[in-house]
Simulated assay, not measured.
Amino acid sequence: MKSTYRCSLTFLAFLCILKVCELCSNVRGSRAFKVVAEGSSLQLSCEVLHCGVTGWTGGWAFREMPTTEFTFLTPSERIVLSNYSSTANSTHLLVNIHNINQSDAGAYRCMITWPGQSTSPGHVTNVTVTAAAVDSSGRNLSHRVLLCLSAAMCFPLVLGLVWCLTPSPPPVPPRSYTSFAARGKQKKELVYAEVTLNKSRRQNDCPKQVPEATVYSSVHFS
């Protein structure tokens, strides 16, 4: 009975040691699919659980489709590799890729080699690179400029239409420059005339008294 109990304890201790060793020699990460546009940036991170063990090597590796082998990334003007320790038992490995292009499409993963020559590959992150995104701010600016130019071109046309559709005022009759004297001559005049008949036989007779009247003209017959 005691021997069975001891064997159980030994087995449990061995399992614990294996579990601790597994946790302390592992790369923590998750599978992911990322879609990025050309010209943008990409940042990836993985966590190496080493429990303070030194001497391990490795980093981020890349596999270009359709190849099957991973090659380690090296720093360049576009690729920046860095790391930091969050705790005494783990270290985060970072990769930043600037100005993404189609050659950066493929699979990325962390690959660590331990002092005992064992390896721990991390989960794969598949990256797809699409065409460059259209700059919305620039497009909005071009649209605004186009609208302003269209409005400036349409304004004279609108003014012309308004001028054409507005009814013209009636013509002003010409003024008459006829003199007042000429106007007076056009009127009909009433002429009073006195006719006097003088005969020899009535020369001595007294003329008949008539009331004086306004004479405008006089005609005498003898």
Rank of each mutant, 00 (worst) to 15 (best):
L157T: 03
S90I: 01
Y192S: 15
N198W: 13
T130Y: 10
T71S: 10
K2R: 13
L44K: 09
T214V: 05
G58L: 00
L94G: 02
A61Y: 01
V127A: 10
F62T: 05
P156S: 14
N140L: 09
D205C: 09
A151S: 04
I97G: 08
I97T: 08
R144W: 02
C164N: 03
T178M: 13
T119V: 14
S142A: 04
C21L: 08
N204M: 12
P66C: 06
N83C: 00
T125A: 15
G138N: 12
K19T: 12
L12Q: 07
T74V: 06
T214M: 03
G55M: 07
F72T: 05
L190A: 11
L146S: 09
G39I: 05
T166D: 00
P167V: 02
V158A: 05
A181N: 10
H220P: 00
P211A: 11
P169G: 02
L49M: 14
L15C: 14
Q186D: 15
V145D: 05
A133V: 09
A152T: 11
T91H: 01
V134E: 09
I100R: 04
E22H: 06
T128M: 06
L190C: 10
S218K: 14
T71P: 00
A61L: 07
L49I: 03
S217H: 07
N126P: 02
S217D: 06
C21M: 05
I17C: 10
T87E: 00
K199Y: 10
R201T: 13
N204K: 14
S40K: 15
V219L: 15
L94E: 04
L12I: 14
C51G: 09
R139F: 11
N96F: 10
L73R: 03
S41A: 11
P115T: 13
M65Y: 11
L81K: 02
T166Q: 08
L23Q: 07
V36A: 08
N140T: 07
S200H: 07
Q102Y: 13
S3V: 02
A88F: 08
A131W: 11
Q186F: 06
S179D: 13
G59T: 14
T113C: 04
L73T: 00
T57S: 09
S82R: 04
A32E: 10
F221Y: 15
S85G: 03
S3C: 01
T113F: 00
V129K: 00
F70C: 01
